[in-house]
Simulated scan of single mutants.
Amino acid sequence: MPGQQVEICIESSHQGETMVQTARAEMFRKPDAAYYRYREPDVASMGSTITTVKVRPNEIRIIRHGDVTAEQTFSQNGKHSGFYHTPHTRLSLMTQTTGWEVALDDHGYGQASWSYILWVGDERAGDFKLRLTIREEQG
């Protein structure tokens, strides 16, 4: 059964630089979570990759499949291990969530914002902020 088409906007900030990405996504609702699945934009670093974002009130998980395989989990004040694999690279990741706000309505629309510290292997890679906005597809 196909999901509902929505527009998803991902804002990522790191070291004063902000990237904004907008995509059409398919939304699937379950009693305990909302899932948003979209194809990554055609950029060389991502190749052909499908991303699924699972949003629950107390946890967000980002899962990528395709040319890039990755998984990152975030929860309020949580610390989680993850990974990032490409045909050329295999990295172990660790995220420590430092800020958290999830405000989705019963239809799966709204915003989730969180900040986190990222470690790649044993190296601290920096502090990041993400904002995910989900709205009805404007068509």
Rank of each mutant, 00 (worst) to 15 (best):
F74T: 06
D122L: 00
A44H: 02
V55A: 06
P87N: 03
I134N: 01
A33T: 00
E11P: 12
H80Q: 14
A125H: 05
R131T: 12
T18G: 12
G99K: 09
D122P: 00
A23V: 12
T97F: 08
R29H: 10
W119H: 11
R37Q: 01
S113H: 02
E136N: 09
I8L: 15
P57K: 02
R64N: 06
F128N: 06
S115I: 12
V6P: 00
Q4H: 03
A33S: 08
M19N: 15
P31W: 00
K79T: 12
T22I: 10
Q96R: 11
K79R: 13
I63G: 08
V43D: 11
F128Q: 01
N58L: 11
E40H: 06
I63N: 11
I8R: 03
V55P: 01
P2I: 06
A125D: 07
G78E: 04
Q72Y: 01
R39Q: 12
P57N: 06
M46Q: 08
S92N: 15
T52K: 05
R131Q: 04
R131A: 07
R29E: 08
Q96G: 12
H107K: 09
R29G: 05
E123H: 15
L118F: 07
R124Y: 08
E123D: 15
K54G: 01
Q21A: 13
G121F: 00
K79M: 10
D42H: 08
G108T: 05
W114V: 11
T22E: 11
R90D: 11
E59D: 12
D67Y: 01
E11I: 12
T22S: 13
Y38T: 04
T51Y: 03
R24F: 13
A70V: 01
E136M: 05
S81C: 10
S12N: 10
T89S: 11
L132H: 03
D42G: 15
S113I: 00
A44N: 05
R24M: 15
V53C: 01
E7I: 00
L93H: 11
E136H: 03
S115T: 14
G99V: 12
T133F: 05
D127H: 14
F28E: 06
E59S: 09
E40S: 05
T89F: 03
E11Q: 14
D42C: 12
I10V: 07
D106N: 10
S81W: 09
G82H: 04
E71D: 12
L104A: 09
A25K: 01
G16V: 14
D105M: 07
E7H: 00
C9H: 05
R124H: 13
V43L: 13
T49A: 06
V120H: 09
H107D: 10
I10S: 02
D42N: 11
H80W: 15
Q72H: 05
V6T: 02
Q21K: 09
G99W: 07
G66S: 02
I117N: 15
P2Q: 15
V43Q: 09
E26P: 02
R29T: 07
Y84F: 01
I134V: 07
E123L: 15
Q96W: 07
T133A: 08
S75Y: 06
R29S: 11
D127N: 14
T52W: 03
P57W: 03
G78C: 10
S48C: 13
A112D: 04
A44S: 10
K129S: 14
Y36S: 03
V120M: 11
E40Y: 04
E136G: 08
